[in-house]
Each structure stands twice: as C-alpha cells, then as structure tokens.
C-alpha cells in the first residue's frame, strides 16, 4: 500500500493508494479489439462473412478510439500520451537501466504503440474494404476504389495482417517487461482499470 490511509470530510477512512486510470470504455474497447482481431485473423481464409464483419467491427472500434482520444477521460486522450521522440528515447533508456520512469497512463513507448497500432488497423480495414469493393461489396462498392481491388492489394492486406501480429507480439512483450520492471500487473490494470498511485501523488485526491 503505497499511500497512507486518510480520513475524508465524512470522517470515513479512505485508502488513496489505487488510482482509476482506464475508464470502462477504454477497457471494453481494448478487449473487444483483442476478440475481434483474433476472429479476423483466424477467419482470414475461412468463412468470408465472419472475416469481413469482424473487420467492420474493428473499423468501428478504431473510430471509437479516435473519438475517445479527443473527448475521452484524462488518460484516454491522445494528448496524455503523445510524447516527443526525446521522452520516448529517455523512457526506453530508463527501461534498459532497469530504473523505469513512472507514468500513470501510457508510458511514452506504450503511447507510441497505441498510435502505430491504430494507424495500422485503420489501414488494414481500409485495404480489406478496397478488396471486397471489387466484388461489389462493402462501403466502397461502385466507387473508383474498386479498380484497386487486385491481388497485389490482397498480398499487402496479408502482409499487413502479419505485420499487425508482430506489433501485437511487441506490445505484449512491452507490457510484460514494463509490468516486471514497475512491479505492477499492467494486464490486470486493463481489466480493473486501476493502477497504484505513485507516492508523490498521494495527497492528490482529485478524480479524473
């Protein structure tokens, strides 16, 4: 328990050591994305409906996340984790030295991964919809985009799918490394939404 107990205005004993970081929507978004990505990946050669609709779902999830990145709660906003290159380098160096800098929300490396993943997912969904537009299906059916429905784009879609898988592996690796170094279970944090409050913020009781 990193923070001392305190008594609030109603004379109730409060524990201030846990902080709400991930709001429910961020968490639902995250695990829905995990589910739909697994479905889309597993159905790549299989039943087309399942693959295509999982892709539509992912597109909407990404749209939601972009929306939430501007108007969401404090730690969900892009402005909270859009760090410069300098901070990203400094953070990675601190990881190597095994003295990681503490960030309540996304650390600079994690924040960068969010942007990369969202961008890659958006691109992937766009390519998928271009491909099926050649068969007269999807939102781009009948538009000029359908002339790009060719096997080269399909190969690109395949390759980006495997690229995404690689990014996810790096993401999971990063989460595990950070969890160990910070001595904090970040996976559980994405389920419960709560993280440990750093000592220097113990007196800060304002909520997000």
């Amino acid at each position: 328990m990193p923070c001392p107990l305190f008594i609030d205005e109603d004379f109730a004993i409060k524990d201030n050591s846990r902080i709400k970081v991930w709001d429910p929507f961020v968490r639902i978004f995250h695990w829905s994305l995990v589910l739909l990505f697994i479905i889309a990946f597993a159905s790549e050669d299989g039943p087309e409906n399942i693959h295509v609709f999982a892709g539509y779902g992912i597109s909407l999830l990404v749209l939601f996340r972009i929306f939430w990145g501007f108007v969401g709660t404090r730690y969900a906003r892009f402005s909270d984790f859009a760090y410069g290159k300098a901070s990203q380098k400094r953070y990675l160096k601190s990881l190597i030295k095994r003295k990681p800098e503490h960030y309540t929300g996304h650390n600079p490396a994690g924040g960068l991964m969010v942007f990369i993943l969202l961008g890659a997912l958006l691109m992937q969904c766009f390519l998928g919809m271009v491909i099926i537009s050649g068969d007269g299906e999807g939102p781009f059916a009948g538009t000029f985009l359908s002339i790009f429905s060719n096997p080269f784009i399909e190969e690109l879609h395949d390759a980006l799918g495997h690229g995404l898988l690689l990014l996810i592996v790096i993401h999971i690796g990063g989460v595990i490394v950070s969890s160990l170094l910070h001595r904090e279970n970040l996976i559980r944090a994405m389920v419960t939404g709560k993280k440990n409050r750093p000592k220097e913020e113990c007196s800060d009781v304002t909520h997000s």
Partner: peptide, 14 residues
C-alpha cells in the same frame, strides 16, 4: 455517443 459506437462495433463485429 461512445457507448453507441462501442456497442455497434461489437454487434457488427460478431
């Protein structure tokens, strides 16, 4: 608004 987007994403996705 966010709730509507999220739930429609899941419903359509599945």
């Amino acid at each position: 608004l966010g709730g509507a987007l999220l739930s429609s994403a899941l419903v359509i996705g599945l």
